[in-house]
Amino acid sequence: MAGLDAFGTQLQRSDMAGSPTFTAVANVTSVTPPALERETLDMTTHGSPDQWREYIGGLKDGGEVSIDINYDPRLHDSLVADLDDDAPRDYKVVWPKALGSWAFSAVMTGFQPEAPHDDKLAASLTFQVSGKPTITTGA
C-alpha cells in the first residue's frame, strides 16, 4: 500500500460537559498529532558487559499538538479562552474514513495569527498534551 489520504482529518474540541460534545475546529489546513516521547534512564555500571551502556524506559511525554487554520476571527477568537484556562481541555484528532482517533487532554500554549499583505489570514495553534493519549483504532 502506498499510503493513506489525510484529507478529512479533524481536531475536535470538547465542551467539557458531563457528557461531552466534541466539535471540529473550523478551517483546519494541517494537523500535527501528539508527538509521543519517552526518556531513558542510564543504568550503566562498572560491571556492564563489554563496557556497553544499558538503559531502561523512563517517563513518557505526550508532546505537543499543532494545527494550522485558515483564520477567521469570528470562528476562532473564542479559542483564545483556552489559552487563559489553566486546566487541560479534552481534544481529539479524528482520522478520516473512520480510521480511528487520538483523544487527549491538553493546555493551549500558543495562538499565532498572521495577516500577510499578499496571502490569506492564517493562524497556528499549539497545545501541550497532559497525561496519556487514548488511541482508538477504527475500521
Rank of each mutant, 00 (worst) to 15 (best):
G131F: 11
L99A: 14
V80R: 10
V80A: 10
S105R: 15
P88H: 04
K92L: 08
V129N: 05
D77R: 09
D77N: 09
E114F: 06
E114R: 11
K120R: 14
L121D: 06
V129I: 09
S130V: 15
A106Q: 04
P88A: 09
M108Q: 08
G110Q: 04
D90M: 10
K120Y: 12
G100R: 07
F104G: 01
T126W: 00
F104Y: 09
D82W: 08
S124W: 00
H117A: 15
A103E: 13
S124N: 07
P96H: 05
F104P: 00
W102C: 15
P88N: 02
D84L: 15
V80Q: 08
T109Y: 04
D82M: 11
D82E: 06
P88Y: 07
T109A: 01
G110N: 08
W95N: 08
P88F: 05
V107Q: 07
A98D: 15
L121W: 08
Q128E: 13
L125A: 12
D118K: 11
V93A: 03
D90V: 01
D82L: 13
P88G: 03
Q112K: 13
G131K: 11
Q112V: 11
S130P: 00
A122Y: 03
F111V: 01
S78H: 14
D85F: 11
V80L: 13
S130E: 14
H76R: 04
L125D: 09
D86C: 15
P96K: 09
D119A: 15
V80H: 01
K92W: 02
A103T: 13
F104D: 00
A87W: 11
V80P: 00
Q128T: 14
A87Y: 14
V80E: 04
D86R: 15
G110R: 03
H76E: 02
G131Y: 10
K92A: 10
F127V: 03
K92Q: 13
L83V: 03
D82T: 06
Q112E: 12
S124E: 08
A81Q: 11
A98E: 13
A81C: 06
P116R: 07
D118A: 11
A122Q: 14
Q112N: 14
D119E: 14
V93D: 00
H76T: 02
P88W: 03
L83S: 05
G110Y: 01
A98Q: 12
S124F: 01
A98L: 15
D85S: 15
A87G: 09
V129C: 04
